[in-house]
Each structure stands twice: as C-alpha cells, then as structure tokens.
Design a protein around this nucleic acid. Structure first.
Lengths: 198, 198
DNA sequence: ACCTGAACACCGTTCAAGT
DNA sequence: ACCTGAACACCGTTCAAGT
C-alpha cells in the first residue's frame, strides 16, 4: 500500500540539507533562514528541529558538505595531470574554480569562527581537503620540484595563496572576469612556486 | 542655557557609526542589529533612519571606515622603514595586524558583494588602501628590487597574499598563535618576493 | 518517532504623530 | 529638523499537542 511515502516521513534530513545548500547559493548567509528551508522542504517551520539541534548545526552541516565538494573538485582537477608540479597547480585551479562557482558556500565554510571547535565533523572535512593539498606538495618534494623537509608550512603557504585570490575575486576586488581570474591565479601560483623552489 | 546639548540633537550620525563599529567587533556581522545600535546610542529604534537610508547603508559606512583604518595601519607600519623592500613587508605586516585585531570588521569590509557598486564611498576607500600598497610596490621597482613594468599585477599579487593569510588565520585554519601568524605572514611574503624578483 | 500550531521575544521597516 | 510609539511581516526557538 505505501508505495511512495511522502519524503518528509523517513528521510527528511538530506532533503533539508540540500534545500539549505540551494538556499545559501541563492541568498547568501544573511538571507539564509531556517523557516525558508523548512518551507522549501514542504514541512512545518520547526520540523527541522527533529534533525538539527538549531540553525547553527544545519549551517555546520552545509559547511561540512562544502568542504567535501571542494575536496572532490581539487581531486578531479588534479586527476589528469602528468607531473607533480602540474598536479599542484591543477589543485589550485580546482580550488578557485569551486570558489567562483559557489561563492556563498565558500563564505559559509570559512567565515564561521568557533565552528571548528563546536562541530568536529566540520573541522574534519576541512582537514581532509587540506590533506589533498598536502599530498600534492609532498609529490613535488619527491619529484625534486620543492625542497625536502616538513611539508606543512609549504602547504599552508599554497593554501593561503589560492584562498586569498579566491576571496579577493569573490568580493569583487580583482579587475578580472572569470577566465581572467583563473589566469591571475595561475600567475600568482607560478610566482609562488618560483619562490618556493629549492 | 544649552551648555551641553544631548548628543542625539545635532551629531547623532557619528555616534551611531561608532556604536555600530563597536557592536560589530563584539558580535560579528550576524549579531549586528540596527535596533541594538540605536539602543546603545540612546535613541529610539528608528532614529537611525534620519541618518542612514537603511541597515545596508550603515553597514557600508562601517566598512568604509574600516578601509580608512586599514589604510592608516599600513601607512603607520611602513613609516619607519628605511628600504623599499622593508616598506613593502611592513605594509603587509600592518595589514595582517589589523586583520587579527579587528577580524569582524575585516569581514564586513570584504564579504559584502554588490556593495562596491551601490556605495561609491565604500569602493573609493578600498581603492585608497590599494593605492598605498601600490606605492610600496612602485618604490620597490624603482629601487631595483622588483622588475619594472606595470605595477598592477604585482600589487594585486601582494594583496592576495596578505589577504589570504589574514582570512585563513581569522577563520582558525592556521595552527599558529598571534605572533606565529605574523611570522608566517613574513615567511609567505618573503617567499613571494623571491619569486617576484626581476 | 515524527510532525504540527500557537506562543514568545526578537528583527527591519513604515507610518502617523509629536516638539 | 529630529525624534517617538504603534504597527506589520518576518525570524529563531520552545511547548503542548496530535498521529
């Protein structure tokens, strides 16, 4: 008899999460509203409280999902590279491409101070993405492109760069279009690589 | 007779602006409320509408003021340097020091897409700060530290770097304390300078 | 278990007044 | 001119119910 159960009986949680991600992309963190998420999921305005303790917990889930997608974007971008150096550069390209495509999502991922302590899953997803970047750096070290030694500062340096270009571009402070921004990111990355070379 | 007029007769605007800046520093952009600003200024909840069209206009004023203070911080930090290269590095140090001291203010300054078109004063204050950074780059070019030519991409590159380190540090993604972050910023800046050298 | 409707204390903004 | 109080449509969160 119950061939198709209404979606809000049993698997509401993923529906809410997806609705939240879509809403954030449309309106940004400021326009983001728990009641509107519920509305879009077709449930009453406090049905979400069955699955998320409060608004912050839903936002943390959105941010966590964002890090997973960013990580996937970097891995995908680096996949077809042949050299270690190209893999690192492609990783950075994946980062900025994600940032330009989902600016509001990136904002949620990074502009939530104190979330790292409060939501371990969120923190872990961020570290996972960092790990992907570090493995590219380590490959460069082994290929002799970068100096041997602790890869940590080099990775943080690489991250700072793509993050800086991404955030500046999103906020409209770079005088480039989409393609120009990606070119600029490559120019910045290559300049940095030159400085990092052993 | 009117020796001391109550401050909300005549010069309410600067009082509101200062209250807003203080409130943002305390609660961040999300907790920031027009009604609370009015409360702190000791006026009714819609007295601010006499001086600002709406909440956005007050936020834009806060952001504009932020760029002026950031600019002053960079100029102050660079003032005592003797070489062009040191001046550029000090400028970057001024930037990150400001960012770590007023993280919420920096967020308001940069995470407001579309404000640049809507509020010319805000956009202009941002360009003013950019000009300060560019003059340091030009000095380095004239001193032979950087290659001659269009200073624009070099300046944007320098900006991207300090901005990236700042934002990453603020969001808690760098494993350093205050002093460590400033040291890391210097390491990043010097690596970059090495790559930029003619 | 999962969902709902009413309620509370907030918010931004508008409007009709007051001096 | 500058400020106020009441009002409107929202919000996050809680609570007592409904199935």
């Amino acid at each position: 008899m119950p061939a198709v159960r209404p979606y809000h009986h049993g698997n509401l949680k993923p529906v809410l999460l997806q609705a939240a991600i879509t809403l954030i992309a449309e309106t940004g963190p400021l326009g983001f509203t728990l009641r509107e998420v519920a509305r879009r999921a077709g449930v009453s305005h406090n049905a979400p409280y069955r699955h998320f303790r409060d608004k912050d917990e839903l936002i943390a889930a959105v941010a966590e999902q964002g890090f997973e997608r960013l990580n996937a974007a970097m891995i995908r971008a680096a996949a077809r590279s042949t050299s270690a150096e190209d893999r690192l550069l492609s990783c950075g390209r994946g980062y900025i491409t994600f940032a330009l495509r989902w600016p509001q999502h990136l904002q949620v991922m990074f502009d939530l101070p104190s979330f790292r302590e409060r939501y371990p899953g969120y923190a872990q997803a961020g570290e996972q993405a960092f790990t992907t970047l570090r493995s590219c750096v380590v490959d460069c070290q082994e290929a002799g492109v970068l100096a041997k030694g602790d890869p940590e500062p080099l990775t943080l340096l690489a991250w700072s760069i793509v993050h800086g270009v991404s955030k500046l571009a999103i906020s409209g402070h770079l005088p480039f279009g989409l393609k120009g921004t990606i070119q600029f990111n490559r120019y910045v990355s290559e300049t940095m690589l030159k400085g990092m070379r052993k």
